[in-house]
Each structure stands twice: as structure tokens, then as C-alpha cells.
């Protein structure tokens, strides 16, 4: 087939695609229209039922809490898998790590980057912690808060303090915190079963003020556990990769 024939074939196919695409567009529901009944129903009852004004968190950690357990364990499995794949093998202990780009001159971090990164560590940690602990009152949650908390640790590395980064996040501690976070979520659910309630039922007092930090019962607690699990998992993943990249001999 000559390039010219191919171009014609493409032109015909592309024209067909455009026509079908535009045709499909005419059948789309209007922008922002929502035909499903559950969204409206949850918006109507969620705040009264859970005392959480962060309705997305109420859905994530309460109405479909069981799905969220599964989601959390995706990240848990990813971090665990990473640790296993990137572990130090028995025969690797003998060999000196070889720098594949040994001739590379690594430019030192500029003072501006180091100062900016160090200045941002505190505010980033506070923001992450705030997001993880305010899932019940704001559009936030343990997942977002956890990743931001983890980036506070990364800023320490970015400031050129790799050794401080590793000292502040030893693998044993990260493993323990990650397990505590993942296990805490499951344990909250199991405690409900022990009380003859459905799994992950919200058995804690809901508080009196909707949206207060102490309100919403298990939602706030679950978000906290998810937060520390996600933060530990991300620091673990990035730490493992940094170890691999910088060829640190443990």
C-alpha cells in the first residue's frame, strides 16, 4: 500500500469517526444532569444521619465503607509488593553497588531550593495532618492528607537532607505505621461485629454539632487511620525507590 493510499484510508476512517463521535454527542445528557436516585437521596439524609458535613467522606467511610477497605488495601499491597521486589537479595550483599552513571557530576541543590523546601516542611505537614483529621467537616480525607503528609518528608529529601529523611522514616517504623493504619480500619469494622452490628457500622457517638471535628463517630477515626496508612505507604514507596536510585548500602 502506498503512503498516498494509506492517507486516503485514514481520511475516510477519520471522517467516519468524527461523524459517529458528533452523533454520539447529541445523545449525551445535559451538562450536570444527574438521573440516578442515590445521589439526591444521600444529599438529603447524609448530614442528619452521620453529623458529617463532608458528605464525600461520609460516603467513602460510611455508606460504602466496605469498598474503601478494599481500596486502602490496594495501596497497602502496592507498598508491600514494592518492598518485596526491591528488597536486598541474599547474593546482593556481597556485590558492591555499581553506579551506572559514575561519570555524572551531580550538581548540588541550590540554596534557594534548600531554603524553600525546609521552609515548606512544617506548613506541608500541618496541611496534611489537617486534611486527614477534617474529613468529616470539609472536602478532604485520609487519602489526600496522607499523600500531603508524605510529601512533607519528601521536602526534607529535596532540601538535600537524605540522611535526615531516612533517619526520620526508618523502614521498621513505616511498616508498623502502615500496618496500624490498614489494620485500624479493619479493626473498627470488626469491633462493630463484636457488638452485634453490621461490619463498619457507625457505633461511636455522632456528636451534636454537624461538621465539628469531634462529630461523625467512626468516620473521623477511619479517616485518621487511612491518613497514617497512606502517608507511611507513600514514604515507604519513595524511600525504597530512593534507596535503589542512590544505591545506598544499608
Amino acid at each position: 500500500m502506498t503512503p498516498r493510499q494509506r492517507l486516503w484510508l485514514f481520511a475516510v476512517a477519520a471522517a467516519g469517526l468524527v461523524v459517529c463521535y458528533l452523533w454520539a454527542f447529541t445523545g449525551l445528557p445535559g451538562f450536570g444532569s444527574y438521573p440516578g436516585p442515590y445521589g439526591q437521596e444521600i444529599l438529603r439524609v447524609a448530614v442528619q444521619q452521620t453529623n458529617a458535613t463532608g458528605v464525600v467522606s461520609a460516603i467513602n467511610f460510611e455508606y460504602r465503607g466496605f469498598d474503601t477497605v478494599g481500596e486502602e488495601f490496594i495501596l497497602f499491597a502496592a507498598a508491600a509488593g514494592m518492598s518485596v521486589v526491591l528488597r536486598k537479595l541474599r547474593e546482593e550483599r556481597e556485590t558492591e553497588p555499581a553506579d551506572e552513571a559514575g561519570s555524572r557530576t551531580v550538581p548540588p541543590s541550590s540554596s534557594a531550593v534548600r531554603v524553600a523546601a525546609l521552609l515548606l516542611v512544617g506548613p506541608t505537614a500541618v496541611l496534611g495532618w489537617w486534611l486527614a483529621s477534617h474529613a468529616q467537616s470539609n472536602p478532604s480525607g485520609g487519602f489526600q492528607g496522607g499523600v500531603i503528609l508524605a510529601s512533607a518528608f519528601l521536602l526534607i529529601y529535596l532540601a538535600g537532607e537524605f540522611l535526615s529523611f531516612r533517619r526520620l522514616s526508618p523502614d521498621a517504623l513505616l511498616d508498623a505505621v502502615e500496618a496500624l493504619g490498614a489494620g485500624g480500619f479493619v479493626a473498627i469494622g470488626l469491633a462493630a461485629i463484636a457488638m452485634n452490628l453490621p461490619y463498619l457500622d457507625n457505633y461511636l457517638p455522632l456528636g451534636t454539632i454537624p461538621g465539628a471535628v469531634s462529630s461523625s463517630g467512626t468516620i473521623a477515626l477511619i479517616s485518621f487511620f487511612v491518613g497514617i496508612e497512606v502517608a507511611a505507604a507513600f514514604v515507604l514507596i519513595v524511600g525504597e525507590l530512593l534507596d535503589q536510585t542512590l544505591l545506598r548500602s544499608a
Binding site: L131, P139, G141, F143, Q144, V147
Partner: peptide, 9 residues
């Protein structure tokens, strides 16, 4: 806004 935070992070 919650998806914004997730996407951002």
C-alpha cells in the same frame, strides 16, 4: 473539591 485534592496530590 475532594477529587481536586486527590488529583493534586
Amino acid at each position: 473539591p475532594d477529587v481536586t485534592l486527590s488529583e493534586l496530590t
